[in-house]
């Protein structure tokens, strides 16, 4: 059984549909990557799942249960964590408080989980008392991912985690995604840096104009000449 199955999803904002019947799956403990040109609706599926875009048709199964239109806190309680692309930290809260907010639903034993996050993102250790809004983009991304990991989710959804980062940070973040995945967390990754993302992924989805264009193993997509020419920048 897939960890996450998005079936025939039609979703959008206001009266405008962005996704016109999209299928996406994440297998337990694997990484699925969504790539595609700007405006293809890559992020919309995640946003729709968390109620930030409207689901018009289709459904979402998590571990076989229908979770379409569940409120966000229920999704988080089931083990789905989501890191939005922008505004993904509480700017005026300290780094430690950001992590604590990730654990809002399960307040006990926070210290151990913060330690686990710090082990994954060592640069955060000395920033714990600093306001998250004062950090650099890369460090903020670490705080955001750390916050999402605080509830020890089964599925981590990342919306363009490397957008706007320097190459150095970019590599670090991809490296951490692999590390998180190796601890058994399924990952759904939306990325602009398609080649790098497919290189660490298992399943790949190419979306264009709100529909599935190509669906294959990530390795096959990387090898596919048509995909490479049209979507991976040659």
């Amino acid at each position: 059984m897939s960890l996450l199955q998005i079936q025939k999803l039609v979703a959008g904002y206001g009266a405008v549909d962005i996704l016109n019947g999209v299928d996406i799956a994440v297998e337990p403990g694997k990484i699925s990557v969504i790539v595609g040109p700007n405006g293809a609706g890559k992020s919309t599926a995640m946003k729709a799942l968390f109620g930030l875009a409207q689901v018009r048709e289709g459904r979402v199964l998590f571990q076989g249960d229908d979770v379409t239109r569940l409120p966000a806190d229920k999704l988080v309680a089931r083990g789905i964590a989501y890191v939005p692309q922008e505004r993904n930290v509480f700017r005026s809260l300290s780094v430690r408080e950001n992590l604590e907010m990730g654990a809002f639903l399960k307040p006990g034993d926070i210290a151990r989980r913060i330690e686990a996050v710090l082990a994954l993102f060592p640069p955060l250790r000395e920033k714990l008392k600093q306001a998250a809004g004062e950090l650099s983009g890369g460090q903020r991304q670490m705080v955001a991912m750390g916050r999402a990991l605080m509830l020890e989710p089964r599925l981590l959804m990342l919306d363009e985690p490397t957008a706007g980062l320097s190459p150095l940070y970019m590599d670090q973040i991809f490296d951490r995604i692999v590390a998180i995945n190796q601890s058994g967390v399924g990952v759904l990754l939306v990325e602009q840096n398609a080649k790098q993302a497919l290189a660490i992924g298992h399943l790949g989805y190419v979306l264009a104009t709100g529909r599935n264009r190509f669906t294959d193993s990530a390795a096959n997509l990387l090898a596919n000449r048509e995909v490479a020419e049209s979507f991976l920048g040659g």
Binding site: A72, D73, V76, R87, F90, S92, L93
Partner: peptide
Amino acid sequence: RLGKAMRAVSDDPDLARVSGI
């Protein structure tokens, strides 16, 4: 915990919601 959550919601209600607050 609730006080910090209050500051978090004030900071960014959407992020608070998707964080499970």
